[in-house]
Simulated assay, not measured.
Amino acid sequence: MTVPQTPSAFTSPIPAVIDELWERRAELSPADTEARGLVVEAVDLLDTGAARVAFVDPATDEVVVDERAKRAILLTFKLLEMVENRFGDFHVHDKVPLKTTFDGVRVVPGAIARWGSYCAPGTILMPSFINIGGYVDSGTMIDTWATVGSCAQVGKNVHVAGGVGIGGVLEPPNAKPVVIGDDAMLFSRCIVVEGARVGKGAVVASGTILTASMPVIDVETGEEISRGHIPDYAVAVGGTRMKKFAGGEFGQPAVLVLKRLTEGERHDKAQLNDILRDSGVATG
């Protein structure tokens, strides 16, 4: 997909008829074969990577959402019927079928990707789950029992380690999904949800939880850098920030930035482990 330079220049590759169907969605049903065909064609564009739910505008560094793409996904739940399928000994009963296009992708037994998600050539799927609208770019590994939620966008050369939970954001259509930047590393069992964002080259330590409202704090200055956005090339861990309430002072969850890596610096696992261990963080 060609990414435009500015959001104002963006034109969805998905036909405008999807917007018309969305406006009268209350009256649609699986009996509307013409509408169903149009929605299937639209989601096929997501499945092949010809369209995507969201992207980062390189001129503004802002996340741009293709609302029409989200509307097409939501319309599938109105227009597709429940179908029972069997894959070996596994039985499924769902409206959304499994993905069947994996050109250049390594898919290990136990990996599940739903139709309408996209995996670029060179990605590796260990036993994991990718939901509809999810986008996984080239060179990325989705490790064992990791999940990529609906509409989540994962960049190039990312390591999504075992048990990582990348949340889905499907409704409302204009809501920004979770975005993971190129070359990021998400260590085991960390969670990124509610449209939060992990910057390019960032490292997120095991067990870290990042939500859209979570304060991200620089430990060197005590400054709150953002809410729900780990900066590029930051090494981040889960932590707490003390806050006074009527009943006393309590620790509230936060994400702490321990260090900024040099821009473009390749991750050295031993170096990262040293950074984390020096701060008393486990590196599992």
Results as ranks from 00 to 15, higher is better:
Glu194Tyr: 01
Asp268Asn: 14
Arg52Ile: 03
Ala42Asn: 10
Asp61Asn: 14
Asn85Tyr: 10
Asp47Gln: 08
Val203Leu: 07
Glu41Asp: 15
Asp143Ile: 01
Leu256Val: 14
Arg277Lys: 15
Leu21Val: 09
Glu223Ile: 08
Ser279Trp: 11
Leu170Gly: 04
Leu79Lys: 09
Pro172Thr: 08
Leu75Glu: 06
Ser206Pro: 00
Gly162Met: 03
Ile130Thr: 12
Pro172Lys: 04
Val204His: 02
Gln5Glu: 13
Leu261Ile: 03
Gly251Val: 08
Glu171Tyr: 09
Ala205Met: 06
Phe90Trp: 14
Thr211Phe: 07
Gly195Leu: 01
Val43Met: 08
Ala161Pro: 05
Thr283Cys: 10
Pro30Ser: 14
Val53Lys: 00
Arg260Asn: 12
Phe55Glu: 03
Arg71Asp: 07
Asp278Met: 05
Asn273Asp: 15
Val65His: 03
Val96Phe: 13
Asp268Ala: 04
Asp47Pro: 10
Gly167Tyr: 01
Ala202Asn: 01
Thr147Cys: 03
Phe77Thr: 12
Val64Tyr: 05
Val63Thr: 15
Val203Ile: 15
Ile275Gln: 01
Ile230Cys: 03
Phe187Gln: 08
Ile142Ser: 01
Ala42Tyr: 02
Lys269Arg: 15
Val158Met: 06
Pro173Lys: 04
Glu249Ser: 15
Asp137Lys: 07
Ile275Gly: 01
Ser206Phe: 02
Val39Lys: 05
His93Thr: 14
Ser29Tyr: 04
Phe90Tyr: 15
Gly37Trp: 04
Gly116Gln: 03
Ala234Tyr: 08
Asn174Met: 05
His91Ile: 15
His93Leu: 15
Gly280Ala: 06
His91Met: 11
Phe90Gly: 00
Phe129Asn: 06
